[in-house]
């Protein structure tokens, strides 16, 4: 069910290419042009197994989340869109929407509030690629000493959505993200005062002051796409057995954790990989 802009006569009244999610390919390609040096020169992102992400059809990408202001989402979205030439919608906390300017840019760049109905519509009805971090805020806000330790995968909602939409879950293990913005401690008082989901004090802030919010350290990014998880359950059910859902979520989590540990064991340097 792609957006239709017909019936308005021969000349299309649309003036922008913003789709019903608020994403604009024009804005996205501009963002990619700006981000290209960051991706290639700063993070020097390298992928393994990108061919496991399908060139068409719906799939849910699932990755580990890290760094106070996470760079993992833009890196994954940039890399996949450049290679496959198809949009990736980033599912994230609705909080972004409430911030002026940021919310609009986030939405134009492919951000979508993480809700089961949004995810289902994207994956099932429109056969799109969506990226989700099942750890959510817990992943991005965890202190540096817990780096690369996967947090709880929510309540397994992402597995249920993939089952309902009949799409595979494709785990992406990311190494390097934790070192881009190490979280030293939390400042819950500031978070409350500003109405933010969390307010971490990062090493970047200690070194650079407020600029540290925007400048990540140039850690080397390695990304490994793992074997897709395909669930042999009928799609479009209202409910799936909670035991099965939790089992699959746990399986995906431990596979992802295993891949991360494997990649960490191979990594000689944080900065050079």
């Amino acid at each position: 069910m792609r957006p239709l802009h017909l019936a308005a006569g021969p000349d299309d009244p649309r003036r922008s290419d913003v789709d019903e999610w608020g994403r604009s390919e024009r804005v996205r390609s501009l963002a990619r042009a700006i981000y290209r040096p960051v991706y290639a020169k700063w993070f020097r992102a390298e992928w393994e197994g990108m061919e496991r992400i399908p060139a068409s059809g719906g799939a849910l990408l699932v990755a580990n989340h890290a760094g106070a202001v996470p760079s993992d989402a833009p890196v994954v979205m940039h890399g996949v869109e450049e290679r496959l030439g198809r949009p990736v919608y980033g599912l994230a906390d609705y909080f972004f929407r409430t911030v002026p300017v940021v919310g609009t840019l986030w939405s134009r760049a492919g951000g979508v509030p993480a809700r089961p109905d949004n995810a289902y519509r994207l994956l099932h009805d429109q056969r799109q690629l969506a990226l989700v971090f099942p750890e959510g805020v817990k992943g991005a806000s965890k202190p540096y000493r817990e780096r690369y330790q996967l947090q709880r995968f929510g309540r397994g909602g992402f597995v249920e959505i993939a089952m309902r939409a009949g799409v595979p879950v494709i785990p992406v293990a990311i190494v390097g993200s934790e070192e881009t913005m190490p979280v030293l401690c939390q400042a819950p008082g500031i978070a409350r005062a500003l109405g933010l989901p969390y307010f971490p004090v990062t090493a970047n802030m200690v070194l650079m002051g407020p600029l540290g919010l925007f400048v990540p350290f140039p850690a080397k990014f390695r990304l490994r796409v793992l074997e897709p998880f395909v669930f042999d359950v009928p799609p479009d059910r209202d409910r799936y057995p909670k035991s099965r859902v939790m089992e699959e979520a746990e399986r995906i989590r431990s596979t992802l954790q295993g891949a991360i540990s494997d990649m960490l064991a191979d990594r000689r340097s944080i900065w050079f990989g």
């Binding site: 019903e20 609705y94 909080f95 409430t98 919310g103 509030p113 809700r115 109905d117 949004n118 519509r121």
Partner: peptide, 12 residues
């Protein structure tokens, strides 16, 4: 509201 889905259906 910010928490809304992109598209409401009749049961949402």
């Amino acid at each position: 509201s910010a928490q809304d889905p992109a598209t409401f259906d009749e049961g949402t």
